[in-house]
Amino acid sequence: MDLTPIWLTLKLAAITTLILLLIGLPLAWWLSKKRSFVKIIIEAIITMPLVLPPSVLGFYLLLAFSPQRGLGHWLQQTFDVQFVFSFQGLVLASVIYSMPFMISPVKSAFQQLPQSLSQASYTLGKSQWQTFRYVLLPNIKPSLLTAAVLTFAHTLGEFGVVLMIGGNIPGVTRVASIAVYDSVEQMNYTAANNYSLVLFTITFVMVLSVFIYNKYQAKSPLE
């Protein structure tokens, strides 16, 4: 079995999760604070990939980043980056596609913390950043871990978006889910089964560990 698609999938999922941790944490924190109309709009946009057909998202990304026109053309001319049929394109699409899996649990975890926690920290003279770092963040750890694992697992399972923007280039954009499809197309059921089994096992172990961890954490008064 050619393991490249598996490695590519794991690499994609790891990078996507890392990027989403970096963007998702501050974004979720901001969204968890006072509501406003702008925030509702932003939240709706972030949540859309949950229900939008992946091919629709992939199609628009393909249009937006096509090097023949507009944004894609400009990016290629100015920075020499191409998001279509490239690994960075997969990363970009995955970040958008998996964003609700990171934002939503982290946001509700922040909202569940009593407001008086931050207030107490402020009265002790601590800044917003210190409060975030030493009070809020440590107390949402279980949710953060769940969000990271789900983001990772969800990225492993991507198919439609990845196929639309990345295509099926061996070693570049052919991730495991596409390798399964490709193998079936070529009537190579053994290969399809191998890839599927690996994905199945990884996903099962990840989801199972989230459940086990959360049950253990349920003793915490905040859960």
Partner: peptide, 12 residues
């Protein structure tokens, strides 16, 4: 110095 009614202790 503020003592909150719900104590507002940091669980961590």
């Amino acid at each position: 110095g503020f003592v909150f009614q719900d104590y507002a202790l940091f669980p961590n």
